[in-house]
Design a protein around this nucleic acid. Structure first.
Length: 934
RNA sequence: GGGCGGUUAGCUCAGCGGUAGAGCACUACGUUGACAUCGUAGGGGUCACUGGUUCGAUCCCAGUACCGCCCA
C-alpha cells in the first residue's frame, strides 16, 4: 500500500543508485538506433551546484531521458574542468587558512601535488550534487580536463597550431592581474563603472617660458611612463607646437608633442598624455609614432623605477628625479596620491573634476587589472574564426533561440588574438622549451635571443634541439638553472651540451575546454565513441559563455575534426532571484538548489525549472512555485494510490483504441493529445509548454474529471465495463508516468515500480503519438463536464450548502441531450451533488435556471431559493451575453469585415452570434418565469 | 555610443492577428474511504504609452518612457 505522500528524502538516493547499478545511464549501444549525444558543460572541480547548474543539467537530463525512452542510443558525457585560476586560489586559501606554507614556499611541484590531492578529495562534490538532481550521465565515462588523455589532446592541439603558425609568442600589452600575477584574457576583465577624478596637469612646453599644455588623466601615476603628448592634427590651438617637446614634470624627460587623431579636440583640453606601456590606446599611438615604451610597474603593480634602465634612460640626475625615485616600490594607488600631491605643490594641477569612468577589474581577483607589457602566447583566432562563422551562417550549427547567433557573429567578426598563457602553476603547462639561440655559420651565440622548441613530448623536444645545436642537450627546470649551468662557459656549451628549459606558463583553462566535445570521446585516438557520437546532438549552455566556450569549441572542432562539434546550441536563461536580481553571495540572495531539493525533492525543483524555462527570458525563481509543483507530485502520487485501492492492475494487452466505454475512449484521446504536446514541446526546446501540457493533463483532466467520473463505474458498473475501465485507468496513468518521467524522474520511477511496472520506467518506451481520438466521446464529455460545472457554480451562487443534495430537471432537451443525460446520469448526480435529475418538458417554477446548450437545467429550490439573488444572477448572465453579442454584431455589420476577413472567421462569428442569441432568449425566458412568480 | 531583451491579474510568469490564461496569494464554503501538500466556487486585467498597418492589434511596424543584459 502506498503511503499518503512520496518521501523524496528517502526514495531519491535509492532510486538513483538502482539506476546506476543497473547501468541505465550507459548508451544502449544498439547499432540500429540513432545516436544522440550531449557533452555536459564541465563544471569547475571547485564548484558546488548553483541554480544555473541546476537549470542547465535539468534541461539536458530532460532531453537525454526523453531520447533514451524514444529508443535512441544516448550518451550524456560528463566531466569536470580543472578551472586554473579558481582552483589554484581555492587551494592557496586553504593553505593559508590551515597555517601551512604558501605556494611560493612549497614550490611548484609540491604545490601542484597538493592541488591534485585536493582534487581527489573534493573534486567529486559537484558530481555528487548532479546525482542528487537526477542527472543521468554515463558516469563510467567521466573525464577531467587534466586527465592524461585530455592532456595529450591539449598538447597535440598546441603543437599543431604552433606548427601551422596559428599559435605564436608576442610582446604586447595584456590585461595583467596584479593580485594573481598572471595575464588574463579580455573576456576575464569586467569593466566596472567607478567614481573617480579627472586630473588636469600642466606640462611645460620646452623653450616657451610660461607656456603649458594641459592634459587630463584618470591615472596620474602612469605619467612617469609618458613618452609623448598627442593633439589632433587639425586642432588650431596646438598647430604651432606640434613637433616641439614638453618637459615631463617630476621626471625631467623631454617628450614630443605628436599629432594623432586619437586625441579628440572635443574632450577635455584636446591634448592627451601618451603612456604606451600602460594603456591600450596609447600603445597603438606609440606604435604609430615609434615612441619608446617605458614600463614603470612591477608585477604586483608597485612602481618600478630604480634600476629600471628603460625609465632611467636619458634622464638627468636632479633632486626632483631623486625624489621621484623615492616612489619606487610604492603601491599604485598610494603612488597616485603622492604624485598628485607633488604636482599640486609645484602648481601644476590645473583642476580636478569628478569623473565616472570604467575601470577594468579582474573577474576572479576583483582588483583593477593593469595593461602591462609582457611576452605571452597567442592564438590567431581570426583564422580559426572563419569556419566557425561559416558553419553557423550556413546553418550547420543552429542557435536556439536564433537571436543569439547575432551575438556570436559580432564577437567572431571582431575577434582579437586570444592570449592563452597564464602565469599559474595549476593547468596544462605549455609544451614549449627554450634554449639559447645560435648562429652556426658565424659560430655565434645569441643568449638573449631564445630559440623555441615545441613538441608533444620531452623526447621529441630533445631530438629537435639536438638537431638544432648539433650537440647533446639536457633539460633544466628553468631559465635561472640554465644560467647557472652556463655561467662560466663560452658559447653556452656545457659538458653535457646545451641546456634547455620548459616554458613555465600554463594554458588558459578555456583552451582545454575548447576541445571538450572531441577530447572526451577519445581524440586524438580514433575511438568508436568519437566516430559514433561526434558531432554531438546539442549543446546546452548559458549565454554568458558563448564567447568563452561555444565559439572556441566551434573553432577547435572545425579545425581538428573538420566538422562542427554540435548541431544545435540551446541557450537557456539565467536564473535570478524572485525579484529579478542576479544571485550573488555578496547580495545574499543566493538560492541553493540543494536546499530546495532537501525541502521539496529534486522532482519539484526540476519541474519548476522546466516550467519556467521559456526561451529567451531570464527565470525569476519563486520558491512558491517549487512548493506548488511538489504538490503536483503529491497529487499524482495519490492518483496512483487511488488506483491501488481499487485494485487496478496492468493488462499488457490493453489497447485503448479497442475500448467500448465512451469515458475510456475519451481519456485515450486526451492522453494522445498530451503525448503529442509533450513530445513536440521537448523536440522544439519549449520545455515550459511540455511541462504545462503534462501538468494539465494529469491534474485538470485525469484527476479532476476522469478519476471522478470512473468512480461510479468502479463501484457499481457491470463487470465488463469495470474491467475495461480499470485497464484504461492504469494505461492512462502509465502514459502520465512516462510523459512526466523526463521532468520528474524519481517519483515516476517509484510509482512505476511500486505498482508492479516491468523493468525500469526510465528505459521503457515513450508513448506513441498514434492512437484513438473519438470526437463523439469528446463532445459527450464536454457536455457532461459543462453541466456539472454549471450546476456547481449555480449552487454556490445560490448559497446552497455544500452538503445538501438537491433535485434537478433537464427541460426542453433535444434527443442528443436526452441520450447524454441517460448515459451519464449517475456521474452527473454524484459530481453535482444532486438527489436526482429528471427530464421535463418545461422548467418548473421557483427554480434556478441554467442554460446549457439548447436545454435548461433547472434546480427547483422551493423554500431555498433567493428570488432576488437568482434574478441578479440571470441578469448578470444576460448582460455578459449581450455585451459579447453586441461586439460580434458590430463586426458583422462592417462591410469591410465581411468582404476582407477570411470566410471561416466570418462564419465562426455568425455561429457564435447565433449561439449567443439562443442563449439570451433562453435566459430571458428564464427571467420571465422567475418574475411571473414575484 | 552600438546591440539584444523586457513592460500582460497583488506577486512570478505563459500566450496570442478575431473569446485574456497558469501557479502562488486572496475571499467563501468543506461534500464524495486517492489526495487538506486537497476539493468546489469566486473576485481580480485600459495587455507601459503614442502613432501606423489591418476589416480587426494585447499580438505586426515605428517612436517614446522605464527596467535589465551584452559589447565598446
Amino acid at each position: 500500500m502506498l503511503e499518503k505522500h512520496f518521501d523524496p528524502a528517502r526514495a531519491e538516493q535509492r532510486i538513483y543508485e538502482d539506476w546506476e547499478k543497473r547501468g541505465a545511464f550507459k548508451p544502449s549501444g544498439n547499432p540500429e538506433a540513432e545516436a544522440y549525444s550531449i557533452v555536459i558543460p564541465p563544471p569547475n572541480v571547485t564548484g558546488s551546484l548553483h541554480m544555473g547548474h541546476a537549470l542547465n543539467n535539468t534541461i539536458q537530463d530532460i532531453m537525454v531521458r526523453f531520447e533514451r525512452m524514444r529508443g535512441k542510443d544516448v550518451l550524456w558525457q560528463p566531466g569536470t574542468d580543472h578551472a586554473g585560476i579558481a582552483t589554484q586560489m581555492v587551494v592557496e586559501r586553504k593553505l593559508a587558512a590551515q597555517g601551512e606554507p604558501s605556494r611560493w614556499e612549497l614550490g611548484r611541484e609540491e604545490f601542484v601535488r597538493r592541488v591534485w590531492e585536493w582534487k581527489e578529495e573534493s573534486g567529486s562534490t559537484i558530481i555528487n550534487q548532479l546525482r542528487r538532481l537526477g542527472a543521468s550521465c554515463d558516469w563510467s565515462r567521466e573525464r577531467f580536463t587534466m586527465d592524461e588523455g585530455l592532456s595529450r589532446a591539449v598538447r597535440k592541439v598546441f603543437v599543431e597550431l604552433y606548427r601551422e603558425g596559428l599559435i605564436y609568442k608576442d610582446k604586447r600589452l595584456v590585461n595583467w592581474d596584479p593580485k594573481l600575477h598572471t595575464a588574463i584574457s579580455d573576456l576575464e576583465v569586467v569593466p566596472t563603472e567607478t567614481k573617480g577624478y579627472l586630473w588636469h596637469f600642466r606640462y611645460p612646453v620646452e623653450g616657451e617660458e610660461g607656456r603649458f599644455i594641459v592634459v587630463a588623466t584618470t591615472r596620474p601615476e602612469t605619467m612617469l611612463g609618458d613618452t609623448a603628448v598627442a593633439v589632433h592634427p587639425d586642432d588650431e590651438r596646438y598647430k604651432d607646437i606640434i613637433g616641439k617637446k614638453v618637459i615631463l614634470p617630476l621626471v625631467g624627460r623631454k617628450i614630443p608633442i605628436v599629432a594623432d587623431e586619437h586625441a579628440d579636440p572635443e574632450t577635455g583640453t584636446g591634448a592627451v598624455k601618451i603612456t604606451p606601456a600602460h594603456d591600450f590606446d596609447d600603445f597603438e599611438v606609440g606604435k604609430r609614432h615609434g615612441l619608446p615604451m617605458i614600463n614603470i610597474l612591477a608585477a604586483d603593480a608597485t612602481l618600478l623605477l630604480r634600476d629600471n634602465a628603460d625609465f632611467l634612460q636619458g634622464l638627468e640626475k636632479t633632486d626632483e628625479l631623486e625624489q621621484t625615485l623615492g616612489l619606487h616600490g610604492v603601491e599604485r594607488f598610494e603612488a597616485r596620491a603622492r604624485i598628485v600631491a607633488r604636482m599640486d605643490s609645484l602648481g601644476l594641477v590645473e583642476k580636478i573634476e569628478d569623473h565616472v569612468h570604467m575601470v577594468p577589474y579582474g573577474d576572479r581577483s576583483g582588483v583593477p587589472v593593469e595593461p602591462w607589457l609582457t611576452d605571452q602566447w597567442y592564438v590567431n583566432a581570426k583564422v580559426l574564426a572563419g569556419p566557425a562563422l561559416e558553419a553557423v551562417r550556413k546553418g550547420d550549427t543552429r542557435f536556439i533561440p536564433d537571436n543569439w547567433k547575432k551575438t556570436y557573429f559580432d564577437w567572431l567578426e571582431n575577434i582579437q588574438p586570444w592570449c592563452i598563457s597564464r602565469q599559474l602553476w595549476w593547468g596544462h603547462q605549455i609544451p614549449a622549451w627554450y634554449g639559447v639561440g645560435v648562429d652556426r655559420e658565424e659560430d655565434k651565440v645569441f643568449p638573449l635571443k631564445r630559440k623555441i622548441f615545441v613538441a608533444e613530448t620531452e623526447q621529441e623536444v630533445i631530438e629537435e634541439a639536438r638537431k638544432y645545436y648539433g650537440h647533446d642537450v639536457f633539460i633544466v627546470s628553468n631559465f635561472s638553472e640554465a644560467q647557472a649551468e652556463i655561467a662560466n662557459k663560452k658559447c653556452h656549451l656545457t659538458d653535457r651540451g646545451f641546456p634547455i628549459w620548459r616554458e613555465e606558463d600554463v594554458l588558459d583553462t578555456w583552451f582545454s575546454s575548447a576541445l571538450w566535445p572531441f577530447s572526451t570521446l577519445g581524440w586524438p585516438d580514433e575511438t568508436p565513441e568519437l566516430k559514433r557520437y561526434y558531432p554531438t546532438s546539442v549543446l546546452v549552455t548559458g549565454f554568458d559563455i558563448i564567447f568563452f566556450w561555444v565559439a572556441r569549441m566551434m573553432m577547435m572542432g572545425l579545425h581538428f575534426m573538420k566538422d562542427i562539434p554540435f548541431h544545435d546550441v540551446y541557450i537557456h536563461a539565467l536564473v535570478r532571484d524572485e525579484h529579478g536580481a542576479k544571485m550573488s553571495k555578496s547580495k545574499g540572495n543566493v538560492i541553493d538548489p540543494l536546499e530546495l531539493v532537501d525541502r521539496y525533492g529534486a522532482d519539484a525543483l526540476r519541474f519548476t525549472l522546466a516550467a519556467m524555462a521559456v526561451m529567451g527570458r531570464d527565470i525569476k525563481l519563486a520558491e512558491s512555485r517549487v512548493a506548488g509543483y511538489r504538490n503536483f507530485g503529491t497529487k499524482l502520487w495519490n492518483a496512483a494510490r487511488f488506483l491501488e485501492m481499487n485494485e487496478v492492475g496492468r493488462n499488457p494487452d490493453f489497447d485503448p483504441a479497442a475500448c467500448r466505454e465512451p469515458l475510456n475512449r475519451w481519456i485515450a484521446g486526451e492522453a494522445l493529445r498530451a503525448t503529442r504536446a509533450v513530445t513536440e514541446g521537448i523536440e522544439a526546446y519549449k520545455f515550459n509548454e511540455a511541462a504545462a501540457a503534462i501538468y494539465q493533463f494529469t491534474w485538470n483532466v485525469y484527476c479532476d474529471w476522469y478519476l471522478e467520473l470512473i468512480k461510479p463505474v468502479l463501484r457499481e458498473g457491470d463487470a465488463a465495463a469495470r474491467e475495461e475501465t480499470r485497464a484504461s485507468a492504469r494505461w492512462a496513468l502509465d502514459t502520465i508516468l512516462k510523459l512526466l518521467h523526463p521532468f520528474m524522474p524519481f517519483i515516476t520511477e517509484e510509482l512505476w515500480q511500486r505498482t508492479g511496472g516491468e523493468g525500469l520506467l526510465m528505459l521503457s518506451a515513450w508513448p506513441s503519438g498514434e492512437g484513438l481520438v473519438d470526437e463523439e466521446a469528446a463532445r459527450d464529455l464536454q457536455w457532461v463536464i459543462g453541466a456539472i460545472s454549471a450546476i456547481r457554480s449555480t449552487r454556490a451562487e445560490m448559497n446552497v450548502p455544500a452538503g445538501m443534495k438537491i433535485p434537478a430537471v433537464l427541460a426542453g432537451a433535444g434527443a442528443e441531450s436526452r441520450r447524454r443525460l441517460a448515459e451519464w446520469k449517475t456521474e452527473i448526480i454524484r459530481l453535482a451533488r444532486l438527489s436526482d435529475i429528471e427530464l421535463a418538458d418545461a422548467a418548473p417554477a421557483k427554480a434556478a435556471q441554467i442554460v446549457h446548450g439548447e436545454a435548461i437545467i433547472a434546480l427547483p429550490m422551493e423554500g431555498v431559493i433567493d428570488l432576488a439573488a437568482e434574478t441578479a444572477r440571470l441578469e448578470k448572465e444576460i448582460a455578459r451575453a449581450e455585451k459579447d453579442a453586441r461586439g460580434i454584431e458590430a463586426r458583422l455589420a462592417n462591410e469591410k469585415f465581411l468582404s476582407r476577413a477570411p470566410q471561416q472567421v466570418v462564419e465562426e462569428n455568425r455561429q457564435r452570434l447565433e449561439e449567443l442569441k439562443a442563449r439570451m432568449e433562453k435566459l430571458h425566458a428564464a427571467l420571465d418565469r422567475l418574475k411571473a412568480l414575484g
